[in-house]
Design a binder for these strands. Structure first.
Lengths: 157, 157
DNA sequence: CGCAATTGAGTTGTGCGCAATTGAATAGCG
DNA sequence: CGCTATTCAATTGCGCACAACTCAATTGCG
């Protein structure tokens, strides 16, 4: 792993600041636009993510949803409970394995897909970037994610 | 605003999905590395951001901190109270303007800067990307942030 | 088979982000 | 000058992320 030899800690402190600021700002900016786009559907952004995977697969165990979205039960359990209260989803213990809970779309949940149809187009338009740039952005993000996930950072400085 | 005319809603749904996944994953990956690096200092990542701006300026009113980090009082008030409890920071009402609260580093807070010196270097190394790629990433993130912030998305789909 | 280890959901507690509101201090206008 | 509008911090309420834990069901090993 490169140690960035030619730079003083002071400079790095600033560069570091810029990178985390940029990522943070972008993340919050996306969140803000999604919030507006989804308000009408009564969904938050993480709830929208869950609905996306359910719209693809119809029904899934909680475990699979968590794997797809990298969310744990501490996040999913209350979130799914809210989706159930909203009438979009049903939760039932699996019969083959009583530990597992299967999440199924209700008719209302499936119907919501139609109303969500314009969300991606409007979001991509709001980014103001051509599709090629978005692809480049995604590629960089994925590379940095893989590296960060596999970098085992030692706790002690 | 362009409507990305040549693509079906289905394709856009996937692209949209991929982009939010990637951004989400990157954000969480950064968070995880920062968490490990900062554990020792007793700081969370947002607390670290506040310390960064204080290390630069020594003392700042809450308002200015919020402007720099784009955080509102609902986030900053309890966060600063925790930093004060940890002994890193003092909070005092300004005398010129009694509405304003000035946040000042304590000796302990200033001293923490030394121990944080290796954090940026270690973080940048963990990204596994050359500095030019990180600059490109930052540039794309900033562009998309500006666009998203200035795009006034209409609430109704 | 029987018991320990693992797995899957759920719960609790802490901290952050955002919206909406409160309350006090200041600024600005008539 | 006096009243209204604005500004600043703090608070409340909700939802999410993460860690640590509980508990039941299942797996697997001796």
């Amino acid at each position: 792993m490169t140690t960035l030899p030619g730079m003083a800690d002071e400079e790095l402190l600033r560069l570091d600041q810029q990178i985390c600021f940029s990522l943070n700002a972008a993340s919050r900016a996306f969140g803000g636009v999604y919030r507006v786009l989804l308000r009408d559907l009564g969904l938050t952004y993480p709830q929208y993510l869950v609905m996306l995977v359910l719209w693809e697969d119809g029904e899934l165990p909680v475990k699979r949803i968590g794997e797809r979205l990298r969310l744990d039960s501490g996040t999913l359990s209350p979130l799914l409970k809210r989706l159930e209260t909203a009438g979009l989803v049903r939760r039932e213990r699996s019969q083959e394995d009583e530990r597992s809970v299967t999440v199924t779309l209700t008719a209302e949940g499936s119907a919501l897909r139609g109303r969500a149809g314009q969300v991606p187009r409007r979001l991509l338009a709001a980014t103001g970037l051509p599709v090629e740039d978005l692809a480049a952005l995604r590629e960089l993000l994925d590379r940095v994610t893989v590296a960060l996930d596999s970098a085992d950072v030692e706790p002690a400085p």
